[in-house]
Design a protein around this nucleic acid. Structure first.
Lengths: 134, 134
DNA sequence: TTCTATGCAAAGCATTTGCAAGTCC
DNA sequence: GGACTTGCAAATGCTTTGCATAGAA
């Protein structure tokens, strides 16, 4: 456990924002100004392989990382692209429904929701239709 | 509707394999040897915008394309990475469960299954454990 | 010491874009 | 003719990798 790895982990655990590798890099650089992107990527990969963090393959953008390794769903805001947790227990029965419908052996599933966060919804209602959430 | 666009669409509709842009390029090049990747990407994007085809953001790989625009789920084989359709009607109630658990306005969801196709399952059972499905 | 990790820079892969020439109505 | 499209090549964005040096066990 090097200093770099330690700080990457601390920063990741200090936020609930599901940052991208680049955002982790920016956060960590405040404390380690000479760290490189390569080190960030290598450590994020290593931490994920060891089950310490989670890598989130959210659609329509770069990989995101989550210090919370519990299995949970996410929702992505169409306006600001922010990713939030959904406090709902994963639906195990989905995999059974799937298994009945195919000849595959189902071993997992990925469920991601898309929607509008309260702030972006407000902007859409009050502002013009094509306005994009910042 | 140019010749290129027509042939891209025909090739996409002729297969159930959910090809990547590169695979579409290879298929189309058999009939139009001078077509470029740029043209393939531009037409796939255009066809998707017009609702003629579907773009699939399957985790852990490049974008895939589907000539079937009906809303349906997919399963990805862990062994050979093949993507297959799941003949199951989308679960609309998932979005309600999600909406009750957050302050987001939910407008959609993406559900993807992961598993082993019959061929890869057979290989894993009979062969060595770390053998990769081809 | 011996193995592993780092910083830097370059490479890799999927995708997008600028542009001059070609095609379609 | 005028708008759109193509092929080509270069650029982009995200991620991985090679390598010599530096740090950890």
């Amino acid at each position: 456990m090097t200093r770099q790895r330690q700080i990457i982990l601390e920063e990741l655990r200090s936020t609930r924002s599901h940052p991208t590798a680049d955002e982790v890099y920016i956060m960590v650089r405040r404390r380690l100004p000479r760290i490189s992107m390569g080190t960030v990527y290598r450590n994020l990969e290593l931490l994920e392989e060891n089950g310490v963090i989670q890598r989130l393959d959210i659609s329509g953008g770069p990989m995101r990382f989550d210090g919370d390794t519990a299995d949970h769903y996410h929702i992505r805001c169409l306006g600001c692209q922010e990713v939030a947790d959904i406090p709902v227990k994963p639906f195990a029965q989905l995999e059974q429904s799937c298994e009945h419908a195919t000849d595959y052996q189902v071993v997992g599933h990925r469920l991601e929701f898309v929607g509008l966060c309260p702030r972006c919804r407000e902007k859409r209602t009050s502002g013009s239709d094509d306005e994009t959430c910042s």
